[in-house]
Amino acid sequence: MARWGITLPLLGVPVLEHRALVSELAGLGYTDVWSAETTGTDAFTPLALAAQWSSELRFGPAIAPVYTRGPATLAMTAATLAEVTGGRFVLGIGSSSPAIVQRWNAIPFEEPFKRTRDTLRFLKAALAGEKVTAEYDTFAVSGFKLERPPVERVPIMLAALRPNMLRLAGREADGAITNWLAASDVAQVREELGESELAARIFVCPTEDADAARALGRMLISTYLTVPAYAAFHDWLGRGEALRPMREAWAAGDRKAASKAIPDEVVDALIVHGSVGECRARVAEYQTAGVDTPIIALLPTGGDQVEQVRALAPKA
């Protein structure tokens, strides 16, 4: 089944105002709704609501950090979402970032690969209904058992950028969730992941004002791709030299210069922009390249976001 996802809630749109849109999505050809968790809504509440407005879509967080909820709490939340979605739930987890984990939640951001691996292993056992007593490298659990385990197995996908996490996702999870990649990068990511499901959040700016789209893209790229994990990801993908001037300006504290230093070709590779038809075709290129589940993340253009979601649908 060809999948086509959308990131909800839409920027600036209250959660409860999504009901009519969610009820339309399956008919438009969307198969998935994925949430995000940074400084807006949490990862789970919008999905629990949206699941009551559609009986066909699949739902998942992309992603829930493995640090900001205890392992047992994360298992209980996943079990609850599996129940309220009627089994149409995929749990996306990942290490997140030092800003979210340490600066905003006051939790040490230590050993992210091991913490993600350990949480994955715990969740697989807990969601299967096992009573878990285990010493992991990064935490220990003693005697936890879900009161009401999910009726159906809950797939777990990992946020993954580089080979070690991608291989872990392919080996022990049900797939990987990635972002900030070009369609031309997919083959390199797929080679490490293997045949498991690959989901990719794709930033889409449906406007024919290329200068405006690139300006927004530069702001986002300079903010994200200076984070160490994303910087290392793009070094691995081969963009390190192209992004070096941006990184140097950012490290010197000159945010404007950092943004200006990003070449057009990098912005155009990582941000999908143009008419809605051109954007839809660009997203489809990711599928052709090997992404199983493209997840559109709509960037603001000043236009009607609900209409843009409709226009970007595969059946539009």
Rank of each mutant, 00 (worst) to 15 (best):
226 T>D: 11
224 Y>S: 09
254 D>K: 03
247 R>W: 07
263 P>M: 14
199 A>R: 14
236 W>Q: 09
223 T>V: 08
251 A>D: 14
216 L>R: 15
264 D>K: 08
253 G>C: 08
182 A>Y: 01
239 R>H: 11
194 G>F: 08
180 W>C: 05
254 D>G: 01
185 D>T: 12
253 G>Y: 11
195 E>M: 06
195 E>P: 02
226 T>N: 11
218 R>G: 08
223 T>D: 15
219 M>Q: 11
240 G>H: 05
235 D>M: 07
194 G>W: 04
249 A>M: 05
227 V>Y: 12
214 R>G: 09
206 P>M: 03
256 K>T: 12
180 W>V: 13
240 G>Q: 07
261 A>W: 06
230 Y>N: 14
231 A>Q: 12
226 T>M: 00
236 W>N: 04
225 L>G: 02
246 M>L: 03
192 E>M: 12
183 A>W: 05
238 G>I: 08
211 D>Y: 08
234 H>V: 12
237 L>K: 09
232 A>I: 07
239 R>P: 01
221 I>K: 02
221 I>D: 01
196 S>P: 05
215 A>P: 02
178 T>R: 00
230 Y>W: 08
244 R>C: 01
226 T>P: 06
217 G>S: 12
203 F>Y: 09
257 A>M: 03
180 W>Y: 10
222 S>W: 04
258 A>Y: 13
182 A>R: 01
172 E>W: 05
213 A>C: 08
209 D>M: 10
191 E>G: 14
217 G>Q: 06
200 A>I: 10
249 A>D: 02
260 K>S: 15
219 M>E: 10
215 A>M: 10
254 D>H: 06
259 S>G: 11
174 D>P: 01
242 A>I: 01
240 G>S: 14
244 R>D: 15
183 A>G: 04
239 R>Y: 15
246 M>W: 05
227 V>D: 12
219 M>I: 04
197 E>S: 13
251 A>V: 07
257 A>G: 15
199 A>W: 00
244 R>S: 14
185 D>N: 10
224 Y>A: 14
188 Q>L: 13
199 A>F: 03
201 R>L: 13
256 K>D: 08
246 M>Q: 09
201 R>Y: 11
190 R>P: 00
232 A>T: 09
